[in-house]
């Protein structure tokens, strides 16, 4: 497909196209800002007010005039929130690291090495996602029970890795295909080993790719409910999603505590979003080397 070919777009003059683009950009940005901010703001506003303030007079008040940490205090004093939270952090960190590392290595292997059945194997892996996970809880429990792996961080980390890895591997496989082999070739010619090359040349280039793989595996692990419910069976080992679902249906727990725990659950995602998005936008900075 050659550039500059006649197309529908070329009916409009370039200056108008540029202006349209600018308007579209601003409009979309504004819409997103509203669409994302309002729901998140609602959560925060309810978490930091006492329920009696939120609901006074029969309407939901979202303007925070009296700040209180009452809801958080209830969580800390009456529930195991801290322990649940730590458990979640442990397995999420483990699963994110493992899944991303696997994806980088496997994605690179799939791109750079030829072996028979490569495409077929990679496609077959995706078929796992087609089975409704609802009915897998029982088989999984049976397997982990038989292996004596119930109630362990290791088992949950492993299971969460297995859930995200098929997709992260695909992501990296595709991503590496956009990285020109010539970069590596020139390193090899200079005498660098394959591992060295992978480390020094390939990884930096692949950064946006593996950052998005990491974001995905983080989301899978942090969001997980089913797996934690299968693998963990004691209160000290529950992750925050399972733990919260346990205390949130108590008679004494209301919307204030619900939103407070939601806010706590949102902190790691927020930090991840702030930190990783910078790396995500490091951009294609090796173009000149080609």
């Amino acid at each position: 497909m050659a550039l500059g070919e006649g197309a529908a777009g070329s009916i409009l003059p370039q200056s108008l196209q540029t202006r349209l683009k600018r308007i579209a950009v601003i409009l979309t940005a504004a819409l997103v800002a509203i669409f994302v901010t309002i729901p998140v703001y609602i959560m925060v506003a309810i978490a930091v007010q006492s329920p009696a303030d939120v609901f006074r007079g029969g309407t939901v008040h979202l303007i925070v005039d009296t700040l209180t940490f009452r809801n958080f205090r209830v969580l800390l004093e009456d529930t195991n929130t801290v322990q649940y939270f730590i458990n979640s952090l442990i397995v999420t960190a483990g699963a994110t690291t493992m899944s991303t590392a696997l994806a980088v290595a496997a994605g690179y292997g799939l791109t750079r090495f030829e072996f028979t059945g490569k495409t077929l194997a990679a496609r077959a892996v995706l078929f796992a996602y087609m089975f409704s996970p609802i009915v897998l809880a029982i088989p999984l429990y049976v397997i982990f029970y038989s292996l004596g792996l119930l109630d362990s961080y290791f088992a949950l980390t492993m299971a969460l890795t297995a859930i995200s890895a098929p997709f992260t591997i695909w992501l990296m496989w595709q991503y590496f295909q956009t990285v020109p082999i010539s970069l590596e070739e020139s390193a090899w010619i200079r005498g660098a080993s394959r591992t060295r090359t992978l480390w020094d040349v390939v990884l930096p280039v692949a950064r946006p790719g593996y950052i998005s793989a990491a974001i995905f595996s983080f989301a899978v692990a942090w969001n997980d409910f089913t797996m934690a419910r299968v693998v963990m069976s004691s209160d000290e080992m529950y992750t925050i999603t399972v733990g919260a679902s346990l205390f949130l249906d108590r008679v004494t727990i209301g919307w204030g505590e619900t939103m407070a725990v939601s806010l706590l659950i949102s902190i790691p995602p927020f930090l991840i979003a702030v930190f990783l998005q910078n790396y995500l936008l490091q951009g294609f900075n090796v173009g000149g080397l080609e």
């Binding site: 942090w222 969001n223 409910f225 679902s245 949102s266 927020f270």
Partner: peptide
């Protein structure tokens, strides 16, 4: 664009929230 960083953070954020939290938030809407 200006404010692109903030937009990016905001956009990634909802995907990282557990469904449980998403449902609570949307119930309030």
């Amino acid at each position: 664009i200006r404010g692109g960083n903030v937009l990016r953070t905001m956009m990634i954020f909802p995907y990282l929230l557990p469904t449980l939290v998403v449902i609570f938030i949307w119930k309030f809407i």
